[in-house]
Write a protein that binds this DNA or RNA. Structure first.
Lengths: 332, 332
DNA sequence: ACGGTTTAGTAACACGTTTTAGTAACACGA
DNA sequence: TCGTGTTACTAAAACGTGTTACTAAACCGT
């Protein structure tokens, strides 16, 4: 910067004013030109580290994930977060913990050492989480997870509404006998989707039938299991709502074995809109899309708000839900 | 830091010596204890930004990707890079450009402004790339891509060897009539795998048959196209090597339509080991795994080496290839 | 007692910015 | 001629570290 100042024949202060477009510096156009020429000539690039030290603000957001590799959704979350951050000239410092509790703690500490302006704490499926306490020292948003006492702003998919709409979609296509191939694990998404399922039935005066609710692991194998249980009974359902696309994949297999044609003999709706599965099943699967990209964006948006009002008295933390839009293909 | 010094009754210098374990400071054990107590009591956390400014080293590596969301591989690359970086207390500053050339330029500039110690430039499939020139101002490694003149260190999958081994695996299982469902696009991976395919045939004195080489897009639809062309001819192949798992998925569909049972009537080998496809096809697909995780690790390893010898005269850039291990399932 | 060495520590500068407070030079009106 | 206001600019103090060069005291061997 001193070199630029020398070349332009001004002081460092003036260079700073010009570069940062500080108008109250009152720098005439002609001088500004001189400075820019010098910047150009010397290929000068301001040092963001020094700037961060002085400004006490690094334009960096920490992004903590549990498992990034084992899920195809991570990329979408990250992309949403980055796209919005980029617009505000903010970069993401990413750490993933592999679910290891100790690493979680040190990850957040490390990010704080690096003076990030905020932290996004993301999990790869909708669940309750226990982020380290130190995360509260800085604006934070939980993504795809939440804390029990709702004391930290969080954003998750609206699984209830998704379950409701998926079911209603089947009803609106004339189905009355609708089975639910449900995840056997106790996760928030399961309970919400199941409630949505039941409420949609109730809304249309369809009694809930316990025989139309079967469980399996949230894998293709689990889908085979649940679909077999659902379809191999007297008076089987004519439509299946599957907890996720992988279970739906299993249901497709069962349908094929039973010589049921989709959607003529059996309608199927999945969940997740997993991009390597749903479009490539035969026929392509109608499913509910998880708003990963949108959650990423929302989280950054919210962090920015929190940062910009950080000095004011703390707002009460928002618990936000984003809708899961339906992707209609050909399985209904 | 001053507060810690006051509480421990020493100077800032001493605190710095203790925290950084600078032995030539000659600080006796007892004083060190006092300092650590004070650090603990005040919950002091060193400011990595200030440290970075002073040390002219930020322990940060920039990670530039083209498209992270549209591929399930991104997570594995990132994970590999992060795992190794974390061991060295280095964090990753990630930017993804969406393939936009202008964003590429500013992305690298932004990273340089932030004084990253090195830059990894990753693409999501093996190809030639044109990273911005400014990337050369700092240790850099290309991941899954390369520049024409080999002037930047790079790491890519060994597609030739992968194609060779996949083909030889089929030969060793008794197949002589082996078809290749090949990508129609001109990408480096295609040429390398095809060369591997031909060389494996040659090694075993099997003449290359032009009718056993058919093209299609690298999608399930493309797989259907190529597999149909390969199988609907007189004397069709008894085994198929597919350019990737998605094309293999299409081949499975064709096999089903032709009532060919896999692997009895038709053996299939894929490529990529895409985790939501390969294990869930019926039967599970034998395929070549792309070394994404390993490439991530290798890139960081290499960057660290480059950083630690940055003052010496420049080494000649390495062009590294990592093997694609075979994942044997039940399609052969 | 004395010179030299070790021990235990500190003062002060440097890293590259931003920003506050201030100053010369000049214009203008009375 | 003087006071006031504006314009164009700068000196210097932060921001929080790491490190070099230095010192005062204690110790040691002769």
């Amino acid at each position: 910067m001193q070199d630029v100042a020398n070349l332009a024949g001004v002081s460092r202060t003036t260079v700073s004013f010009v570069i940062n477009k500080v108008t109250k510096g009152n720098i005439p156009e002609e001088t500004q030109q001189r400075v820019w020429k010098a910047v150009e000539a010397l290929n000068y690039r301001p040092n963001a580290i020094a700037r961060g030290l002085r400004a006490q603000k690094t334009n960096t957001i920490g992004f903590v994930t549990d498992k990034v590799a084992t899920t195809p959704f991570a990329g979408q979350i990250l992309q949403g977060a980055q796209d919005l951050a980029w617009q505000h000239e903010i970069l993401l410092l990413t750490v993933n913990t592999g679910g290891n509790q100790e690493i979680k703690e040190t990850a957040v500490s490390t990010l704080l050492e690096r003076q990030v302006d905020g932290i996004i704490y993301a999990t790869m499926y909708h669940r309750q989480a226990n982020p380290p306490q130190v995360i509260r020292q800085v604006p934070a948003v939980l993504l795809d997870c939440f804390v029990e006492d709702a004391s930290i702003t969080s954003v998750v998919p609206d699984d209830y509404k998704g379950g409701f709409e998926a079911t209603e979609f089947l009803i609106n296509h004339g189905h009355r006998k609708i089975g639910f191939a449900c995840d056997i694990q106790d996760v928030p998404a399961k309970f919400a989707r199941l409630r949505g399922f039941k409420d949609a039935l109730a809304k249309h005066q369809i009694p809930f039938n316990q025989d139309y609710l079967k469980y399996g692991m949230s894998t293709p194998e689990g889908g085979v299991l649940a679909a077999n249980a659902l379809l191999n009974q007297d008076d089987p359902p004519s439509a299946l709502f599957c907890y996720n696309d992988r279970m739906a994949m299993g249901a497709y297999q069962v349908a094929q074995e039973l010589k049921l044609s989709i959607p003529a003999d059996l309608a199927i709706v999945g969940y997740d809109n997993q991009d390597v599965i749903a479009p490539y099943l035969n026929p392509p699967l109608t499913t509910m899309q998880l708003p990963h990209y949108e959650m990423g964006k929302w989280a950054v948006e919210q962090i920015l708000q929190l940062i910009n009002q950080a000095d004011n008295q703390p707002q009460i933390p928002i618990q936000h839900k984003l809708p899961c839009p339906m992707v209609v293909r050909h399985s209904v």
